[in-house]
């Protein structure tokens, strides 16, 4: 961390170079508190995380840390479960990001007009996003409960579509599908709010002009809507990818059958209080995610320029 500047020292220098660098110095002074805060809250934990990934760290600070070199990394990178869980996570993230973004955009376009109870329906749509995970998880578990859940009641007792209630959250395939639907349903309102905000700033005359030129709905979407919402779209996809990639709560509370990377991290490291191992997993994940986003953003930027 950089030490703060000494005020007595800067006071002397200030006079001489005031004209040329006065502004940037003041800017720096104003930024200093933020820089220090960021360094303390982001930079320091990051470096510390990388450091302890090379150690076996005891919980008791008075006991010695044992230097392991790359052993923590080796353990993770040679574990077949890690790759399996990485695969599950990539699929889960891809489906959730695409699903919640498309659904959010669709609903936003539907809502981008005047109708009665518009405000009320908007609030209802946002509900799944603002309710705490744990209450939603309980509701879903009750809905899919094998003895008294409403879904099984409808599928088995009322309509007779199925003979026997399936064990929704005990079968890896159905669990994965449900966990993904849960995530899409829970997170699409975020995309919805962002898209609606930008759609409302758009000029209606663009569409009118296109109509005069004989454009159909799809052409209007591709040529007018999409370019206009592009910056928001990129932000939403990037953020949602990061958030979903590290998802733990929603998945772990709903089922034990879907080992996404967050669950893997928890099971491998935190239930064993092995901080070094946990740190090494998070460094690996950071590298993977950073690489993916860096290259995909570059591709998007290049595509934008051409």
């Amino acid at each position: 961390m950089k030490p703060p500047q000494n005020p007595t020292e800067t006071r002397g220098k200030n006079k001489k170079i005031k004209r040329r660098t006065g502004d940037s110095k003041i800017a720096l002074a104003f930024l200093l508190p933020t820089i220090i805060l960021l360094a303390g809250l982001v930079l320091y934990p990051m470096i510390e995380n990388i450091r302890i990934s090379f150690f076996d760290v005891p919980l008791n600070p008075n006991l010695d840390e044992i230097f392991l070199g790359l052993k923590n990394y080796q353990t993770v990178l040679t574990d077949p479960d890690f790759y399996r869980s990485l695969g599950v996570t990539v699929l889960y993230t891809a489906l959730t990001v695409v699903g919640s973004t498309v659904l959010g955009l669709g609903v936003a376009m539907l809502f981008n007009r005047e109708f009665r109870f518009r405000k009320l329906s908007r609030s209802i749509i946002i509900l799944s996003y603002v309710t705490p995970s744990i209450s939603l998880v309980f509701a879903w578990q009750y809905m899919f409960n094998n003895t008294y859940g409403i879904i099984n009641h409808w599928l088995v007792d009322v309509t007779g579509i199925l003979d026997k209630a399936p064990l929704w959250f005990d079968n890896p395939a159905s669990s994965f599908v449900l966990v993904t639907i849960f995530a899409i349903w829970r997170y699409f309102p975020y995309a919805f709010i962002s898209f609606l905000a930008i759609l409302q700033t758009m000029d209606e005359t663009l569409y009118e002009a296109a109509e005069i030129d004989g454009a159909n709905a799809w052409q209007k979407f591709v040529n007018i809507t999409l370019p206009a919402i592009r910056p928001v779209l990129i932000t939403i996809v990037t953020l949602r990818t990061i958030w979903t990639f590290y998802m733990f709560n929603d998945v772990y509370l709903l089922t034990k059958q879907v080992d996404v990377i967050g669950v893997y991290l928890y099971e491998q490291a935190f239930s064993q209080n092995d901080m070094g191992q946990a740190a090494s997993i998070s460094v690996i994940l950071f590298v993977i995610l950073f690489t993916v986003i860096y290259f995909s953003r570059r591709k998007v930027d290049v595509a934008n320029e051409t």
Binding site: N14, K18, K25, A29, F30, L32
Partner: peptide
Amino acid sequence: SKKKAFLLMSSLTLGVL
């Protein structure tokens, strides 16, 4: 003045630290 602003911010930062 700019100088005063600079001094104020610097001392605030130091104070917080």
